[in-house]
Design a protein around this nucleic acid. Structure first.
Lengths: 231, 231
DNA sequence: AAATCAAAAAATGTAGATATTTTTAAAAAA
DNA sequence: TTTTTTAAAAATATCTACATTTTTTGATTT
């Protein structure tokens, strides 16, 4: 029997669309999110729209001022550093746990995802190439993290990933377009996998920490260049 | 000039009240949250009420089923273990960072809060005693955590604290009413502070991990006894 | 310039309309 | 008789359209 796709309510739909439009840059940091415009754009009423907006406020992607409506949250170099620092330390901790707790199935998944990622070739259009590499890169890292066995830690991790997304997008193009950067990333991934398989929690954690912090200087430069954020 | 308290919207008010009513047990795990009842209880319309509810869904305190309304999220021993495990590891990591990064002002704050906590005496009514000890205990731990210097990590920590709250409430009475338990806690706190001051990040982290895991068996027993949750 | 005030725009809330699910109870089948 | 099915009724969730309140705008005066 065909699994019926659960009929989503308007708020959930609007939430997804608006989130996509913000991370993809359709709405820029600081932009006013005018209720009348959003209602029109997503074809829904004010009630559900507010519901979607306040979800995004909780996720720090939107800010709210009482009686003054909503804006796309600003980006800042300070926030960039904070998010990446937090992410790196959290993920390093998760990896250490994964090395201690992960079983053979976990190992197999990680190796599989690493292979799939390494084999992304420049055969596609640029945008397809970026989104394919990104998708597989995320799946690789998620496969590693799952080894920790804690859904709560994975939820926290997802929260930070979401918050990092707008900054990550900036880094992505630079990296996928640079053969050198891609080669470096591949090397780092290989080193991490090696440490995992040797069950060296400490080394895996340290490698992960560094791996996640390397994008920061690159993103900083882009943000400064494009004047996308306050200092 | 007196600072005017920002006029909150209905959704925010309802959010706070409902959250309090859930953590304090006015609504029990699994209870249906009938829209008509909530509207009546908090004297607001359905729109803002939905907004509040879906915030709590995001925080995992309420569950939603499309077209079928909302329920108080169930509790389970599995979730108890997951939350406490995640919290303990996150907090241990934060403490290690705090030891590496915290300055003299941080040290002073921690010592101050430790002192304030240690001096809670059994002079008050039972409920006052509980809530005072709880308040100061939280402030003590928060003062320690702040040393990590990352607002994102502190946000993640707050998320888990919130999710733990319903379980924590069960532990609190047992502990505050047992002189032995209180003495033990005081000893653990002293040991943590000592490690902090000696700037022994590793030891402070380990002590914190253990400190946060001790309530789990106690809560497990209470939950089983009161049949508050699935296994 | 700075202050004032009315008009316009915008946010927020409510009441009621609509759609969906659950309950009830009667009818049919076992 | 008991169980299952069906259909209508009731209860409930959800959405929209409009009403109310607050903020913003910008012309006018000090």
């Amino acid at each position: 029997m065909m699994m019926e796709a659960e009929r989503q309510n308007q708020a959930v739909i609007a939430y997804g669309l608006l989130k996509r439009d913000i991370t993809s840059g359709q709405f820029r940091p600081g932009d006013k999110l005018l209720m009348s415009h959003l209602k029109e754009r997503y074809q829904i009423g004010a009630g559900p729209m507010r519901e979607a907006l306040s979800q995004l406020v909780a996720e720090r992607m939107v800010t709210a001022a009482s009686q003054r409506g909503f804006r796309v949250a600003k980006m800042s170099l300070q926030e960039l550093n904070d998010i990446y620092d937090a992410r790196a330390h959290l993920e390093a901790m998760i990896v250490r746990l994964a090395v201690e707790r992960g079983d053979e199935h976990w190992e197999a998944e990680v190796i599989g995802k690493a292979h799939t990622l390494a084999s992304v070739a420049a055969l596609h259009s640029t945008d397809e190439m970026i989104s394919l590499w990104d998708k597989r890169h995320k799946e690789f890292h998620t496969a590693i993290a799952r080894g920790c066995g804690s859904s709560k830690l994975l939820e926290l991790r997802a929260t930070l990933m979401d918050q990092a997304e707008r900054y990550r997008q900036l880094w992505l193009r630079q990296t996928v377009f640079s053969t050198e950067a891609l080669v470096n990333k591949r090397r780092e991934h290989a080193a991490i996998v090696e440490a995992l398989l040797e069950r060296d929690a400490q080394r895996a954690g340290t490698l992960m920490l560094d791996h996640l912090l390397t994008p920061v200087p690159i993103i900083t430069a882009i943000v400064r260049e494009a004047k996308l954020a306050e200092e």
